[in-house]
Design a protein around this nucleic acid. Sequence first.
DNA 1: GTGGCTTATACTCTAAATGAGTATAAGAGA
DNA 2: TCTCTTATACTCATTTAGAGTATAAGCCAC
Lengths: 313, 313
Amino acid sequence: MDETRGTETDRDVQIDLIAVLVAVIAGTPSVLTIGGGDKLPSGPFELGHRSLQSGLRAWVERQTGHPLGYIEQLYTFADRDRFGRGAGRAISISYLGLTRPEEVDGSAESRWTPWYAHFPWEDHRAGLPAVLAEKIEPGLKKWAASGGDGQAQVARWQRASSIFGFDDRSWNEELVLQRYELLYEAGLVAEAHRSHGPQAGDAPGKPMFADHRRILATALARLRTKIKYRPVVFELMPPVFTLLQLQRTVEALSGRLAHKQNFRRLIEQQELVEETGETASDTGGRPAKLFRFRPSIHMERTLMGTRVPITRS
Amino acid sequence: MDETRGTETDRDVQIDLIAVLVAVIAGTPSVLTIGGGDKLPSGPFELGHRSLQSGLRAWVERQTGHPLGYIEQLYTFADRDRFGRGAGRAISISYLGLTRPEEVDGSAESRWTPWYAHFPWEDHRAGLPAVLAEKIEPGLKKWAASGGDGQAQVARWQRASSIFGFDDRSWNEELVLQRYELLYEAGLVAEAHRSHGPQAGDAPGKPMFADHRRILATALARLRTKIKYRPVVFELMPPVFTLLQLQRTVEALSGRLAHKQNFRRLIEQQELVEETGETASDTGGRPAKLFRFRPSIHMERTLMGTRVPITRS
DNA sequence: GTGGCTTATACTCTAAATGAGTATAAGAGA
DNA sequence: TCTCTTATACTCATTTAGAGTATAAGCCAC
C-alpha cells in the first residue's frame, strides 16, 4: 500500500485546531474572535499535546485567557489552496465550544463578536431580515437567471428558494451552512472574491479571515440542530435562571421566536429543570420562579432528547 | 505546555484516511473490510490529493476496486498511543460511504463483513439478542459493583441500564457508540485488553484491528441517526424496489422492526417514491408494486426530513 | 379449480404531541 | 386603585404516531 511514501507524505502538513467558542451575552449570541474580530482562535496541533481536545484547550486558553468548558468536534478541512499555493497545505480541525456568561471576560487579544453581524439573514426574531428582500433575493434571482439553459435556471432558483424560504416556502433555521455556501457560490459574500473587489462592500454580512466564516456557519448549523435534541442550551445558561431567560437563549440561537406557553410546557414536561424556590422580581412584571437544571437528569438527557417549540409562521 | 517539543510541529505526523463503506447485501448490512475482515480500508493522505475526499476515493478504489458513491466525513481521531509509543503519531480522518448492491463485487483483498458480527447486541430484529442477557448484563453488573462507593456503583448501573435499556428501560438504537465505549470501559470487549488475554475469547462481538471497531460504531451510530431525517437509505437501494425491500433495509440498519402498514403510510405521504407501474411477483405472495426514488424530490428532501416508524415494543 | 399460505394494500381507532389561543395571577408604578 | 408588564394555568383543534382489522391478489398442493 505504501507506494509513493517516504518522501513527501508526512512533511509540510500543518495541522491547525480552530475553535468556535460561543456564549450568549445579554441575549446576544456571540463568538470569540481575535485579530480585530474577524478571526477564530486557532493554533497548530503539536506533538506535545496529549489529544486534539487538550491541544485545543491549551491554545485557546493561551490565546484568549478563556477556559474551555463543553467542546465538540465540528469538521476537518483540507483545502490545498486554503492559504495560497506553494505554502504546503494545512489541515484544520474545528471545534465548537459553549460557555456561560459568567466565564466571559475577553482578554486583550480576544473579544466577543455577535454572530449575526456575520449572518444578518439568519436572525428572524424580529421578522424577516431586510437584507433578504433587499439584497439576497434579487442577488440570487440574478444568479439563477445567469445559469445555463432554462432548465438549469429553474433548478437554480428552486434550490435558492427552498434553502432561503422564498416564494412562501418555509424557513428552516438549520440550513445555515447551505445558505452560506449558496451565497458563496453566487458570489454574494465578500469571501467569494479573492481580490475583495468592489462588490465586497455591498455583500451582506461582515466577512471573516480565510474560511472562518464558513466554519462559523458550520458551527451555527450544528448548534441549531443540536439544541433540538440534546440539552446543550444549559451549557450557555447561568446556574439559575427564569424560563423566559431560557427561552430567550434558545431563540437567540435558533434565530426565531418560540411560543411562550408551549415552550414552558415542553420544558416542564421534560423535567429538565427544577424550581429553586426563589423568584426573580426584576423582570418588569409578575416575579418569575427561578429554575436550575436538574443534574440528575443530565446524563439521561444527554442520551435521550430535548425538544424546543418554535412558532410556525 | 510544550514539554518535550523541539522543532517538530509538522513532522512525523501521519494523516490517515479511513473508510467505513456500507452496503446492504441480501438484507445483511455489511462493511467493506480488508486483511481478513478485521480492518477498515485506509491509507495515507498524500500531497498529490486534491482534497480529503478525493484522497479517500483514490485509496479505497485502488485498495478494494470499489468505486465510492455517497460519502460523508465522520470524525477525526488523534491518539498519541494509537500505534504504540515512539512511532510518531497518526491522525485519522474517518468517512462513511454508502453503496448499492449492484456496485458490490469484492476484490481479492477486500470483502464484505456483516457488521452485526462485530456488534451482536445491536441487532434487535429477532427480539433481544441473547448476548445481552447472557454476557453483557451480568458483565456490566459486575463492573458496576466494582466501582467505588455505593453511590458510584449506583451511578454506574444507571448509566449502563439507560444506555442498554436494562430494567425495562427502552432501547435507543442510536446509542451504538456509547454502548461500545461502555463495554470498552468495562473491559467487556477484546480490544480493551492490549494483550488479548484470556478474556478476549469470551468477549462479545468480533474484535477488529486497532480502534477500527470504535470507528465502525461511530459510523453505525451516525447512519442510524441519519436515516431518520435524511433520505440516505436510497443510496443503499437498487434503482427499483418494493416497499418491503425498502423497509427491510431500514430495519437492517436500525436493527429493529418497523410496523409495515405505518411504514408504508409514512413513505407514501412523504412522496419520496413513485410507482414505476411494474410489479414484482417473486415475493411469495401478492405481487408488490415497484417503486423508484423520486429524483425531483431529492434535493428538497436532502434539505428537509425523512422519518421512519419503528415499533415501540 | 379450490382451499390455504403468503405478502400487499387499504382503512379504522386511539393516544400523544403540537400549535395556537384565552383566562387569570402577581408584581411595579402612576 | 388603575394600568402595564410579565408569569402561569388551562382549553381546543389538528396532526402525527402506534397498533390493529379487513380485504386483495398472487402461488401451490391436491
